[in-house]
Simulated scan of single mutants.
Amino acid sequence: MYCPNCDAEQADGNTTCKRCGIVFEKYWEYHLRPDESADKAPAAPGTQHRHSSNARMRTETHTAMRELFLPAVTGANPLHTWAKAALLAALILWGLSLIGSSVASNAAGESFLHLINLPFHEAGHVIFRPFGEFVTSLGGTLGQLLMPLIAMLVLLLQTRDPFGASVALWWLGENFLDIAPYINDARAGVLPLVGGNFGHSSPYGFHDWEYLLTETGLLHLDHSLALASHLLGSLIMLLAMAWGALLVYRDFTAAR
């Protein structure tokens, strides 16, 4: 038998197309079967064509998204697969350790990755300076979130490296964990800042989140917002680890 949508040859009894992914029974709900006559078509003019177009669009979208995030695996290199597995294992162990740490512990802020995040944070202040004092202060946080997001999009859309994109997504989540202690410190001002300063002894505006939350009247919510940032980052990291694990599993399966 052949797929009625893409003409790919199928094994008898298949319920979905192995190439384009359509479900045959759903396809025939909106199309005439070869053995059906035209008088069995829906009565309303244009209905069948509209349904057919919608069904095809949904199928094409689903196929494109699947190919983007979970592309077909052909000829996986065992060495590359094991390298991915090793990196993924390290990210899972490290990620779970960071996720399980409290906001007050500043585990992410004390890791070496904080030193990688920091330049993007400081660059964000410079990049967003033309937009005023408030956005300049917010720009530090935006800078360290935008960098992994841009990396993920480039890896996913340009280089077509979904595993690399999953690592960048993990990094994005880690940045939310890195930001959380800074938000949490808005009132206390005890975390060391750039240049050896502290929030409680620095001029107003030097501590980004003290300034941002004071200006928005949300300073009393610093701990709650910090926890929300930690939880959001944790969810993103878990999603990234699950995505990466699925990709590595597919590589191993294809290599059998």
Rank of each mutant, 00 (worst) to 15 (best):
P71G: 06
A242K: 12
W28Y: 04
D161Y: 10
L149Q: 03
N77I: 08
D251C: 11
S201L: 06
F163K: 15
R56M: 12
G196Y: 09
R50Q: 13
P4Q: 10
N5Q: 10
P78D: 07
A240Y: 01
S37H: 12
N106T: 00
P148K: 11
A226V: 01
L246V: 08
G217I: 03
G196L: 11
V248N: 02
H125W: 11
S137H: 09
K84C: 15
N5D: 13
A86Q: 11
S53Q: 15
K18S: 15
G143R: 00
I99P: 00
Y30F: 06
G21N: 08
L93P: 00
L146M: 14
G95Y: 00
G100R: 03
G109Y: 00
F134Y: 05
A254H: 02
V126P: 06
P130K: 13
V248L: 15
P42Q: 09
S229C: 04
K40G: 04
A55G: 07
E67D: 15
R33P: 04
L145K: 05
I92S: 02
L91M: 05
F198I: 09
I150M: 11
S137C: 08
N175C: 02
R187I: 11
H49Y: 09
D161T: 13
K18H: 15
F24M: 13
L87W: 03
Y249P: 04
A254G: 15
Y249K: 12
E110R: 14
L88R: 01
L32Q: 02
A41I: 02
A107H: 01
M147G: 06
P34S: 08
H121R: 09
T216F: 04
T15A: 10
T136R: 14
G124H: 03
L115W: 13
C20G: 06
P45V: 01
P34L: 13
H31I: 02
G95N: 01
A180E: 10
L87A: 08
F128D: 03
T59R: 07
L193W: 02
L193G: 10
D39F: 04
G199I: 12
L193C: 14
T253E: 12
L169P: 00
S101K: 00
A254E: 10
L247H: 03
K26F: 09
H125M: 13
D7A: 07
I150F: 12
L193P: 03
D161C: 13
W82H: 08
P4W: 09
H200C: 07
A255F: 05
G173Y: 01
D251A: 07
Y27K: 02
A165L: 11
A165H: 01
E67A: 10
F252D: 09
A245V: 06
E210W: 02
V73D: 03
C17L: 07
G21Q: 02
L32W: 03
A41R: 04
G233K: 00
F252W: 14
W243F: 11
L115C: 12
L138H: 14
R256N: 10
G100V: 00
M65A: 10
H200L: 14
L191Q: 10
T81V: 06
L153S: 12
A168E: 05
